[in-house]
């Protein structure tokens, strides 16, 4: 496999094989809860926790699970951790728990988690599985929070509103407002805004990747043409 080093694992999780932007997994919570940055961040962290714990467990039991029943067992593992996370959020972040509602139990069905369990954790040792889960989870969380922030700014003209749901009362001052007469574009908060926003984020990622590839080709060429001749055309 190409992603043999830990550096590659991290790079893949955050960028190259980002679960939201490249694999397009877990789109249901991604599109449904990202109407504010804090909601996105909250669900992202919950997903990150479940992903890490389930990856570690699946990796630990990978040699004793019979091939034929591995999927039901993975789902059982994931469901247990989701229940644990749900109960903890109910206890410690009750307001955020109420806002995210059904999407916390639905983490069980997030394809990104079962995907990593099946594709990575069931074939790799605990340490590598942990790093993979952390990288993938952070990558997913970043997309959720970014999409939430974009939709919140365009739709309501605020950023980090209701931060106290997550960081306690001290965070009430975190909210940034874009001016009082800002008329939010309602569409951004409604479901179509999530689809359009995600599409634009994917497009942005593809543009950055293309630029990087072109720059790489250009440096390679200029290395070849170091004798002085200008490359006739680039890209």
């Amino acid at each position: 496999m190409a992603d043999s080093t830990y550096g590659n694992l991290i790079k893949n999780g955050l960028w190259g094989n980002n679960q939201a932007l490249v694999a397009l997994l877990g789109l249901c919570p991604l599109l449904a809860v990202t109407n504010t940055a804090i909601n996105g961040l909250g669900l992202g962290i919950a997903t990150l926790l479940v992903l890490t714990l389930s990856n570690i467990t699946v990796s630990l039991i990978r040699n004793v699970v019979p091939e034929e029943v591995r999927l039901p067992i993975f789902v059982l593992v994931i469901a247990s951790f989701v229940t644990a996370v749900e109960l903890s959020m109910n206890a410690y972040f009750y307001e955020l728990y109420k806002v995210l509602g059904i999407f916390i139990p639905l983490i069980v069905t997030n394809c990104a988690i079962i995907g990593r369990a099946e594709a990575f954790a069931s074939k790799n040792n605990v340490l590598r599985s942990t790093v993979d889960a952390l990288a993938m989870g952070v990558g997913f969380t970043l997309v959720l929070a970014t999409l939430g922030a974009i939709r919140e700014i365009i739709g309501m003209g605020t950023l980090f509103s209701q931060a106290h749901l997550m960081f306690g009362d001290a965070a009430r001052g975190f909210t940034i407002t874009l001016g009082d007469d800002f008329q939010g574009m309602l569409l951004a908060i409604l479901p179509p805004g999530a689809f359009i926003g995600l599409g634009l984020l994917i497009a942005l990622k593809n543009i950055l990747d293309q630029r990087a590839t072109r720059a790489k080709i250009a440096t390679a060429r200029s290395g070849v043409d170091a004798s002085g001749a200008q490359p006739s055309s680039v890209g």
Partner: peptide, 8 residues
């Protein structure tokens, strides 16, 4: 439709 939904 973008305008109608966003700024009714």
């Amino acid at each position: 439709v973008l305008l109608l939904i966003s700024y009714p």
